[in-house]
Structure formats: C-alpha cells, structure tokens
Design a protein around this nucleic acid. Structure first.
Length: 886
DNA sequence: GCCCCTAGGATTTTT
DNA sequence: TCCTAGGGGC
C-alpha cells in the first residue's frame, strides 16, 4: 500500500508538524509512540473513534498509516479486542500490508487480527460458518471466472441457446453486475434480465444459482450476496456479528460496490432487538438525492440502490434524514430504542476510484455523509510523496472532473523536475526511448526497483518486454496471470477439490480425462445425462454407470479405476498429511508423469509450479483450509528480490509508489480508452481521468508521459492523436521533450529537441512535433514513410511501421508469463443438452428401448440399475435413465 | 477418442 | 497479430 509520511527527498528537513514547536514535541513525547509523527488531520482521523468517520485521503497522504494507527489506538485504549474489529480492504495486498504494519507497530502484542481481510475473504468466512442457512455446505467451493463460464455454457446449451449469439462470457458479466449490485435473481429488473438470450437472462441467472447450490459452490459475487441474504433472512445471525464488531474500518471506500455497501451497512447498524424483524425496526430507505456537483445521469446504475427490495432492511438513514453535521442521529420513528451509529470509519479517495467498470460506486463515498448522518469528515491533503511539479500536474488534471468531493493536495517538498511529455513516432520507438532513459537513470545511480512503467492496457507491455529482453534489462511484470490460474495448478486443484467435495462436478469434469484415460466426450456426456436425470453429482453418476454395461469395457475399466483411486485418496486423507496426499494424488493419477513426458518447452516450468503448489499447502492446516484460501487469498508472489524495473497496468499500480514513473501510451482511444468512453460516456471519461491521476501520483520524483503517433492495434498500424489528458496538464509544470529513441522522425535533420525545450505554453499537445508530423503524414496519405529521409540514427533500425514486420524476435517472455495452454475442454454444454424428458419407474417385464442396445425386456431391477434382455445385444445391465418404455 | 488445422474473434482494467 | 474454439480427418 502507500507509504505515507515517507521522509522527504532531496534532503529537505522533516516537514511533519509534530516536529514543529516545543509544545508539539512535548505533546509528542507524552503520547503513545504510534501517534507521534502524525499531522493534525491524521491524528484527528486516528483519535476520532466514536461515530461514523469518513477520511478523504488523497494520494500519498498517509491513508494506510492512519488506518493502522487507528487500529492500534483502539486496541491500546482498550476500546476493543482484536477480534472485535472488522477491518476490510479491497485487495489481499492491502490486507497483508496492514497486518505487517500492525505487527511492527504493536510488536507481537496482537495475535493476528482475525477480521482483517478483503471483503471477499471475510464474506466467505462468515458464509462458511453458516453455510447451511444458505443451502451450502461449509466446504463449498469458490468458483473462479473460468468455472463460472463453463457452468454457464452448460446452462446455455441446456436451454438451446446459441452461445455464439449469446456468449456465456456476456452472461457471466451480467450476472456479475447484478451480484455487484446486490440483486438476487428475483430482484433483477425484468427489463434488464430480458436483454440476454431473448428474454431468458433472468431465468438463466436463477438456474445458475440453483446449479451452484447443487455443486456446493459459490462464485465471487455470492460471497457477498449470499452473505447479505444470510443476514437478511436470519436477523439473529446478523445480530451476532453486529455485537461482535465494535469497530468497523474500511479501506478504499471509493471502490466499494453496492453489495459491499449493503453488507457494510447491515453490519454497521446497531444490533436490533431480538425477535423484531429488521424491516420493522428501521423503515427508512435512502432517497436518491443528487450529490451536488455530480453530473446528473452519469451513473445509470445508481438507481438500483433505491429499489425498496435491496435497501429496505438495512436503511441506516431514513428518507429525508437531515444532513446533520454535529449531532448524532436521533431515534427515528419506528425505532424501539436509541440506535447509536456504529463506529465505522471509511477511508478513501474519490479521485482514485478506478473500478467503476466492476461495479464500484463512487456514489458510496460521495454520499457517505448522507448515509451516515452525523459523520465526521476529515480530509487529508498533505502529500508526503511527490514533488511540487508532479503534484501540481496531477491536481490540475483531476480538477477537470466534475463529480468529486474536492480536495487540494499540497506538498512542502521542493518543486523538483517538471513532468515531461515526450512524443515518439511509434510504439516501438516509445519503448526504445523509455529503455534508454531507464538505462540513463540506472547509470545515474537509480535503482531499477525505483522505476516503474505503468500502462493502460496489458497489451502495451509486450513491446517493453521485447525491448528489455534485447537490452538485457531486468524487469518484472506485476499482475498478469495468477499462480492459481495456470492450467497445471488448476488441474491439480481440481483433483483436490474432487477429493474434498465429491459434488464438485466442475472439478471432476476437468480432470476426468486429464491425463488422457480414454474418457472422452461421449463418456462424459453419458455421465451428464445420468447425473442430470437423477439429480446426483457426476461422480455419483460415474459410480453407478460403472456397475453397468453402458460403457465400452475400456472406458468402463478406466472410469472404475479412477473412482477407486478417488475412494482410496479420500480414505488416505484421514491418515496422511494434506501435502503428502497431494503428492500421492499427483503421482498416482499420472498427472505428474504426463508433464514429465511432455516435450514442450514449458513442461519443466509446469512441474516446478506443481511443486510450488504443494509447498504452498504447507502453510495451511489441512486440505479444506487450503482450498478455502487458494482462490481468495493466493496472490502470485513477487518473490524476486532482484533489482528490476516494474511493469504493470495503471490499475494494479494503485497503492504503489516509485521514484521514477514512466507513463506510455497517452493517446486518444487508448488512454482514455475508447471503449470506456463508448460504454460509459462522461462517467467513463472521468474514470479514465482518475486513472491518469493515479498514474501521475505514483511518482515521487519523476513522472514521464509519452505518446506515440502510430500504434499497432490488433496487428494493424493506425495513426493516433495525443491524449486529451495531455492538454489538461498545467503548462508551468510540464516540459515537452523530444524522444530520445532517436531512430524515428525526430533525428538531427528534423525537429531538434532544442526547438521545443523552451515551449512556454503547452496550449495544445497537438502542437507537439509528433502530432504535427502525424498531421503532415496523414495529409500525404500515409505514404511518405518517415519524412525527411533519416536513416537509422545509430539504432537498430526497425522497418517502417507500415511494413508490418518486426525487427526483433518476440518469443521470449518474462519469467512466469507463459500464456496458458490449457487442456482441451470437453464440450460440456452439448452433454447436458441431450438429456431430455423424465424416466418413469420400471417394472419387471417392461418392454424398453435403449439407444445403443435396441429393444428388450426388463428382467431384473436393482435400484436404478436394470438388467435387460435385449433382442440383439443379449442380457445387459444398464442405468434406468437410459432406457424408455415402449 | 484424439489430434491437427483453420477460421474467426479479440484486446482494458480484477476480487 | 496472436489466440482460441471448433470442425474435420485419422
């Protein structure tokens, strides 16, 4: 997370207020250590323990520090025990960081904070405790997106919906969106549910939820949504948690979505009286007051929250509640007892809300005071991170946004270097230029660890990776595919999941034929048919089918072996440690062997990953514990301590900071992203701008922006124009420089750097050389190539961007960045689609028809297994679901 | 049942 | 341009 209050650079003396006068020092000396060194606002944020508090913490103002100090303060004041503080963050990274800092601050005094974690992990934890109340078992599986989509594909196929026209991915997105807004299937507005699959969207959502229960599984959204449902339907359970959590702290409040908001509000209510339904205690609902200064209609989704269904139960602020600055809320009509506001403290920055696309509601933070009347709002505006120019540039840029609460960041640091804007001919030159500058910085004594490149979209990374590989410049990619998303890890997990939860069809299906066992589509299809008709898990279906003659001997044999293996493993689970069990499973299943035999280049890496997986299991007590955490908590660990440049997206850079930050690709269409603009209009633009703001404020000493005149998108080159955000930067804080990549148009003969060094007014970035050249280029019909006939100015000259060929190879990727090559998926959808109709009970002598064996008569009945004398095939055992009476 | 090849699609951002 | 799913051939 952020590193607030980092001591200033450039040898400027500490500007922390506490170091000021004698009085301040005396006070600092008399106060607990964790409070010293806080500025007055921070200190107020830490010490205001009672009632709702909103801390608006701009970039680099010490947000995390305030949160951790606040926890320390609560504990040391004896106001609550560690287990009575609910502290939620958005990412695992943030949660870990807080735990770490708390540990440092309090020594070993705190034996962990059991309720410090992400929304999802805490939600999941509560859900497991009461799983049976929401029709799950406590060992339920958390499905990731991949599982989710596979499941939806099955449902689409079962409904005969063309998944070309209506992709499962799209439905997954819709469902996700609904869940983010706290909507159960019955609460989705009919109009919205109808947009998918010719009006069947709502039904599919319901069917999906139903399937999840059968599979004993929950997806990410359920971890919160089902939690909310749990709280609503079981007030006694809710009350238990309301009692437990004396203090609630929320990090990155601007990123919360409606579901998270509802969840928080339920918990933030004072406990109601037992036996009284919540809805009768607090009748209020939130009205849809428009936040002043916020553009109307920018947020089409905000209306959802006003729905009576979603909100009724948890209304904290009755409609029309006065916006009360001083006084706590008075008892409202309908309340049976004084209902003091819970001690909830939300920390966030509306200017850093960048997850709107994922359902985050900036509104949550914008209307905090309204939702929690009497809230104290504290602004942290003192920035301890960036130099003056950088901060000025970022502030000026973000001031173009309308929907914000408004903060003015200030620093006491020196002005430092101006923010630079550099145009280059194309994205390759951009990468070259940045590579050069990095090497220069390195020569000047900068650590590579202090350097980051932040891109808008991950496809931009490639060029840098290529370039850095050629240069031999160490780099690391942050983000990207997670460890547990790799095919081999997921396969291994699927084995373990099947052991742990026999109803986990998705897991079983994933590995039933991995490694190859001759159990292909046809077999799986049959299992599906049977499972569906009898409403049993696939694994159980397999067990039944194996007892019959439905399958060819070979397939039957291998399926029988597989079942026997699982039975054995499940038995071993009782007597073997989970890590050992994992090794046994990987070994006996032939999975390890499969990769050992694999001749492809990445096989070794995959085996290594498997080992790593087993190693990582050691941290957990047992298999169940491990599986519970893997999908929620396992981050790809950076691990590498080496000095390396960081390469990541702007999104994953939030919360980080670097001395030197390179921001390439500031072009219209890319940044701001055209897609965001198309889909979300003005709100989208503002979010992109916030992203830009986040990017610039990551920099401590140098922020360097770039735009290229030509960029290759989907393999074809196109001419781009500089981002409007460049125009929105304040001229006095910005310096326009010439690309040092050199090989392009900007060489000696053309527009020399000197000509633009002294540009007084930044007026429009369209006056930059890159843009002028681009214009000229376009006027000439894009045929002139690089004008002025400069040959390679001492660089590997790459081909003209229009030639489409590349000068360097691109086969080597960063460590651990191999693209997933996953095992071919079975066509599960079709499998289900074929199952139709219901089977009635059979009696002896019934005449029946079987697809494979033809006509025959029932001669024996053993539960669902029938023995039938077929006219042509002779006597066979079959499963009843495969025959029909004639 | 498995493998190879091809055509078409996609490209934000992530718990 | 690259990747993936899906179809067709063995």
């Amino acid at each position: 997370m952020t590193e607030p209050n980092k001591l200033p650079h450039h040898g400027v003396p500490d500007h922390q207020p506490a170091a000021g006068g004698i009085a301040a020092r005396a006070r600092a000396a008399a106060t607990p250590q964790y409070l010293s060194g806080l500025n007055p606002e921070q200190r107020e944020a830490v010490e205001t323990l009672d009632g709702p508090v909103l801390v608006l913490a701009g970039a680099g103002t010490g947000k995390t520090r305030v949160l951790t100090c606040r926890i320390a303060h609560i504990l040391s004041q004896g106001r609550a025990r560690p287990g009575e503080i609910l502290s939620v963050t958005f990412t695992n990274k943030a949660a870990r960081e807080m735990k770490l800092r708390l540990g440092q601050m309090l020594g070993q005094a705190v034996e962990g904070m059991p309720w410090l974690g992400t929304f999802h992990s805490i939600g999941g934890r509560i859900l497991r405790t009461h799983a049976e109340l929401v029709q799950l078992k406590s060992n339920f599986t958390v499905l990731d997106v991949d599982d989710q989509i596979r499941l939806l594909k099955q449902l689409l196929a079962a409904d005969n919906i063309d998944d070309k026209r209506w992709p499962a991915r799209m439905l997954a997105g819709l469902i996700d969106g609904w869940k983010n807004r706290g909507l159960t299937p019955s609460q989705v507005p009919p109009g919205e549910a109808a947009v998918f699959g010719n009006g069947r969207g709502g039904k599919l959502y319901a069917a999906y939820q139903e399937r999840l229960k059968i599979l004993n599984a929950a997806d990410f959204g359920d971890l919160l949504l089902e939690n909310i449902r749990l709280f609503r339907e079981h007030p006694d359970v809710l009350r238990q948690y309301q009692h437990r959590f004396k203090f609630i702290l929320v990090d990155e409040y601007q990123d919360t979505n409606v579901a998270q908001y509802l969840w928080l509000r339920l918990l933030a209510q004072a406990p109601s009286k037992p036996g009284v339904p919540l809805s009768s205690v607090i009748p209020g609902r939130i009205d849809s007051t428009v936040i002043p200064g916020r553009a109307e209609g920018t947020n089409p989704e905000s209306g959802a929250r006003d729905g009576d269904q979603t909100d009724r139960d948890s209304g904290f602020a009755p409609a029309g509640a006065p916006r009360n600055d001083e006084v706590n809320i008075l008892p409202q009509p309908g309340m049976t007892a004084p209902n003091p506001p819970k001690n909830i403290c939300c920390v966030g920055d509306d200017d850093q809300s960048i997850y709107g696309w994922r359902g985050a509601e900036v509104d949550n933070i914008l209307r905090f005071e309204h939702d929690f009347p009497g809230a104290k709002v504290i602004r942290l505006e003192r920035n301890y991170r960036s130099t003056g120019h950088i901060l000025a540039a970022a502030s000026h840029l973000i001031a173009h946004n309308e929907g914000r609460l408004g903060k003015t960041l200030r620093t006491e640091d020196v002005d430092g270097e101006k923010v630079t804007v550099t145009g280059s001919w194309d994205s390759e030159e951009e990468a070259r230029a940045i590579g050069e500058e990095i090497e220069e910085l390195q020569r000047a004594g900068n650590k590579l660890n202090d350097i980051a490149i932040l891109v808008r979209a991950s496809f931009q990374m490639r060029e840098f990776e290529d370039r850095f590989v050629t240069l031999g410049l160490p780099y690391r990619v942050i983000g990207g595919p997670r460890f547990y998303e790799r095919a081999e890890v997921r396969d291994a997990l699927a084995y373990l999941r099947t052991i742990n939860s026999p109803a986990d069809d998705l897991a079983f299906e994933r590995i039933v034929n991995v490694p190859k066992r001759g159990l292909g589509d046809a077999t799986v299809q049959m299992l599906h048919d049977h499972a569906r008709k009898r409403r049993i898990p696939l694994f159980e279906a397999a067990r039944a089918v194996v007892e019959t003659d439905e399958l060819k001997p070979k397939a039957r044999g291998s399926l029988r072996d597989l079942i026997a293996s699982f039975d054995r493993w499940r038995a071993q689970r009782e007597v073997t440690s989970h890590t050992e069990l994992a090794e046994i499973v990987l070994d006996e299943s032939g999975y390890t062997e499969m990769w050992q035999k694999d001749r492809s280049a990445d096989a070794a890496g995959r085996l290594e990953n498997l080992k790593e997986l087993v190693r990582s299991m050691e941290e957990f007590e047992n298999l169940q514990g491990f599986l519970e955490h893997i999908s929620l908590v396992m981050d790809r660990d950076g691990g590498a301590e080496d000095d390396a440049v960081s390469l990541m997206t702007l999104h994953s850079a939030k919360g980080l900071e670097f001395d030197n930050v390179f921001l390439p690709g500031w072009e219209e269409g890319l940044f701001p992203s055209q897609r965001t603009l198309d889909e979300q209009g003005r709100a989208g633009l503002e979010e992109e701008r916030r992203l830009a703001h986040v990017g610039i404020t990551r920099a401590r000493r140098r922020a360097k922006l770039y735009f290229a005149t030509n960029r290759r998108i989907h393999g074809t080159w196109s001419t781009t124009i500089p981002s409007r955000f460049l125009d929105e930067l304040p001229a006095p804080n910005v310096e326009i420089t010439e690309s040092k990549g050199g090989s392009g148009w900007g060489g000696s003969g053309g527009y020399g750097p000197s000509r633009f060094d002294n540009v007084e007014s930044f007026g429009s970035s369209y006056s930059t050389p890159g843009w002028q050249r681009a214009q000229a280029q376009r006027a000439r019909g894009q045929n002139g190539g690089r004008g002025g006939g400069q040959a390679g100015g001492g660089f590997n000259e790459s081909q003209s961007p229009f030639s489409g060929s590349r000068s360097d190879t691109s086969n080597s990727r960063g460590e651990g960045f191999s693209r997933n090559k996953r095992a071919p998926l079975t066509i599960e959808g079709e499998l289900i689609a074929k199952s139709t109709g219901t089977t009635s009970e059979f009696s002896l002598d019934d005449r029946v028809f079987h697809q494979k064996f033809g006509y025959g008569n029932v001669v024996k009945i053993d539960g669902n297994k029938l023995t039938i004398a077929f006219e042509k095939a002779g006597e066979k055992k079959v499963v009843d679901s495969f025959v029909e009476r004639v």
